[in-house]
Simulated assay, not measured.
Amino acid sequence: MHTDSFYIGVDIGGTTVKLAVVTPEGTIKDKWEIPTDLKNKGERIVHDIKQTIFEKIDRLEIPKTSVIGVGVGAPGFLDSISGFVYEAINLGWIDYSLGSDLEEMTGWPVFVENDANLAALGENWKGSGENSNDLLAVTLGTGVGGGVVANGELLNGANGTAGEIGHITVVPDGGAPCNCGKTGCLETVASATGIVRVAKEKLVDNQASSLNASVPLTAKDIFDAAAENDPVSEEVITYVTNVLGMSIANMANVLNPSKIVIGGGVSKAGDSLLIPLRKAFDKYALKRVREAATFEVAVLGNDAGVLGGAYMVKKRLENK
């Protein structure tokens, strides 16, 4: 492959679409983002993506023939073989043929994957995963996403839903409603929004907590207050990390990963998240599973998805 070949990685989020031009070795030549146009059920999103890629390669003086393919991550439930999106609530898409639409518009091969899976691929290729054959990636952001690499391959499952750790039921009765339509999912407890919800419930009976001064309350406020020994915040973090540690341990008991990579905005809490989380994980995981697994914080940040997109193009085309 010539040094002048490139992959395009695209990571579609509810607020912005992140894009990058990536070399076959995994170096980002250029990266940028555009706002996600959610009007009319996201009908302009793919057109905007095509437009911005064409403008960018033009500016970089990259001929269209040097682009080998496009790897796209989208939030929601989709078929990674056909590139068909069944449902992406945050974008307004239902039954949308994302892959073939973008392929038609650009003339390049397009490969589509769930955004959390792509982040796992990117992190494994160029980040904390260090090309591990068996990896569990957990993204703690507005929701809770998961991606699984088993025997060196991304695990998709029968209809593309493998790795959805955010929808493990952790509160079987009386749990909070989740965006997926169920109640009591891990996402309602361990996402940034879930952590805030749990704290607000506890604050009803704890007017003295320093958290009452934080308006609007964020997950970061709760970690910061816990570091200052605020009892309500400490209680919230103990509860959240216990539930999350148990869920990750249950997944790990099935998958036996060598690396567990924690990413997303909440992972910025660093050791104040990781230390209690590892303690809870060790309590619930099998001894041999515990011994095999190291915990890492994701290092690629917003680049994980676009690098995962590029890596997916590389792998899919190699396997053809």
Rank of each mutant, 00 (worst) to 15 (best):
Leu286Asp: 10
Leu274Ser: 04
Leu136Gln: 10
Ser66Glu: 15
Glu61Thr: 10
Glu33Phe: 06
Gly152Leu: 12
Ser132Ala: 14
Glu104Val: 01
Gly270Ser: 14
Cys180Glu: 12
Gly163Asp: 09
Arg278Ser: 05
Tyr239Arg: 04
Gly166Phe: 05
Gly146His: 05
Val170Ala: 13
Leu217Ala: 08
Gly73Leu: 11
Leu154Val: 15
Val289Asn: 10
Ala269Lys: 00
Ala227Asn: 14
Val22Cys: 02
Ala137Asp: 00
Gly99His: 08
Gly13Thr: 12
Ile89Cys: 06
Phe84Asn: 10
Pro63Cys: 11
Tyr284Thr: 03
Ile262Gln: 07
Thr241Lys: 00
Ser82Cys: 12
Val313Pro: 06
Val232Asn: 01
Ser100Met: 05
Asp101Ile: 15
Gly127Val: 09
Val189Leu: 06
Asp303Ala: 09
Ser82Pro: 06
Thr241Asn: 01
Gly270Tyr: 06
Val198Leu: 11
Arg290Cys: 05
Glu235Met: 09
Glu130Gly: 02
Ala225Gly: 09
Lys268Leu: 10
Arg197Val: 01
Gly270Trp: 00
Ile195Tyr: 05
Pro231Lys: 12
Gly42Asp: 01
Pro276Asp: 02
Ala285Ile: 07
Leu286Trp: 13
Gln51Arg: 08
Gly129Phe: 09
Ile262Trp: 07
Lys259Thr: 08
Ala292Gly: 07
Ala293His: 04
Leu211Ile: 12
Thr238Val: 07
Val196Glu: 04
Ala227Leu: 14
Leu255Val: 11
Ile68Val: 15
